[in-house]
Simulated assay, not measured.
Amino acid sequence: MLKRCEAERGKEKLGLEVSPREGDYLESLEGIIFAVKGNIHPPTHVIAYPKYIPNGERKGYKKLSSLTDSISFLRGKFPEYLRFDPIFNDTLAEVPKTRIKRLYSPQKFLQLLLTKNNLNSVEKDSIDFAKLICESASIPLSSLGISGSVMVGLHKEDSDIDLIVYGVEECKVVYNALKKLSNEGLITPYREDQLKKLYMSRVKDTPLPFERFVKIESRKLLQGFFNQREYFIRFVKNIWEEDEKYGKKYYKYVGQIELEADVVDDSEAIFTPAKYKLGNVLVVNGTFKNSDMIREVVSFRGRFCEQAKRFERVYIKGKLEKVLSVEGEYFRVIIGGKGDLFYPKD
């Protein structure tokens, strides 16, 4: 109960003028804690999926570990939070701003922890890791935030570290710093035996064979271990750095598709949302004929960051969308739904 009270200080009231972003959490009037997805939202709603629901288990809350579970919960209990979005042309989990009781800010929570005495082990490791990254990258702590269960006071002794880095340039220098920290042994990637738990938490939505999963995940820098504790880092653009505003583009569902392609640009693979520019696209399952019009694959889920590298040939299974704007039109593949796949071919 004490940790929940401390977390209350990290909350702020939300008005219609506030723009929640990736990594923020929000609490609805019903006490449901949602994780905000992306930086682009309708004017009166926030795209967010339930992460913790009141039920008396984990300090009064139960964690929903998969997107499938989150959507099933809303369908069964709160279908009013599933809304057809006319811009994204899809039914999304969207919370009306008038139904939001609190917003949790990772940046403000980090600053709060800096003033706190007697940090517990999760809080201390989170702060120590943030300071190490900032020192190595020569950026201020204000460029980072601490998210996840610790931010909302629902962490356990073995909870992981969830860090957010804000700003395009800040993210780039941090990524280079992570390479240096890895070479120095201050952070370590997952070993095969350590990946089993992570695999079980993801396979429900992303059914990769374990051997392929190990090959992909073990080469990522945005996740691993610091001080023998798991960490996950998300790179998020500042709101003013986004080249897209809600309503600037319109998305139209075309159908499910499977394809192979070359990754020709992975410069935004480290961000959430992650984007990969594609070339030499070959449709392997589907009736879509204009394969040269498929320009990118996009995911709003952090698990697909660092998923493939430039020049790699990849397999993609996901949702094909037509993107329309005043500049013209093209097609993209969205991955992140149940059964979607994206991996380098052997």
Score class of each variant (00 low, 15 high):
122 V>F: 03
84 F>E: 10
181 L>W: 01
79 P>D: 00
300 F>L: 08
229 R>F: 11
225 F>N: 03
49 Y>S: 12
96 P>Y: 12
148 G>V: 00
81 Y>A: 02
52 Y>Q: 03
182 S>G: 05
16 L>T: 06
181 L>P: 00
205 D>Y: 14
125 D>Q: 03
193 D>C: 01
132 L>Q: 11
83 R>C: 11
48 A>S: 12
52 Y>E: 06
318 G>R: 00
7 A>K: 01
236 V>Y: 11
47 I>T: 12
346 D>L: 03
93 A>M: 07
273 P>M: 00
308 A>V: 13
295 R>Y: 15
104 Y>R: 02
112 L>R: 10
218 S>P: 07
110 L>I: 14
91 T>A: 04
35 A>M: 10
244 E>H: 11
286 G>N: 11
87 I>D: 02
233 I>A: 11
35 A>V: 11
178 L>S: 01
80 E>I: 05
267 S>Q: 07
312 E>P: 13
137 A>Y: 01
151 M>F: 02
303 R>I: 10
296 E>Y: 10
307 Q>W: 05
74 L>A: 07
103 L>P: 04
328 G>A: 09
252 K>N: 08
57 E>H: 14
169 E>I: 04
208 L>D: 00
265 D>I: 09
94 E>I: 10
268 E>D: 14
201 S>N: 13
41 H>K: 02
45 H>A: 02
281 V>C: 10
91 T>C: 14
92 L>V: 14
152 V>L: 06
36 V>L: 09
181 L>C: 02
33 I>G: 03
316 I>V: 15
54 P>Y: 07
142 S>G: 05
254 V>L: 12
9 R>V: 14
284 V>Q: 14
344 P>R: 00
344 P>W: 00
64 L>P: 14
230 E>V: 03
319 K>G: 00
267 S>E: 13
145 G>P: 06
263 V>N: 04
261 A>W: 09
286 G>R: 04
156 K>R: 15
227 N>V: 05
194 Q>N: 06
31 G>A: 03
210 F>M: 00
286 G>D: 10
19 S>E: 11
138 S>Y: 09
145 G>I: 07
91 T>P: 07
255 G>F: 14
338 K>Y: 14
254 V>Y: 12
186 L>N: 07
187 I>T: 09
327 E>N: 08
288 F>Q: 05
86 P>T: 13
149 S>T: 07
277 K>Y: 08
2 L>T: 14
116 K>F: 10
36 V>T: 05
318 G>P: 09
194 Q>C: 03
296 E>V: 11
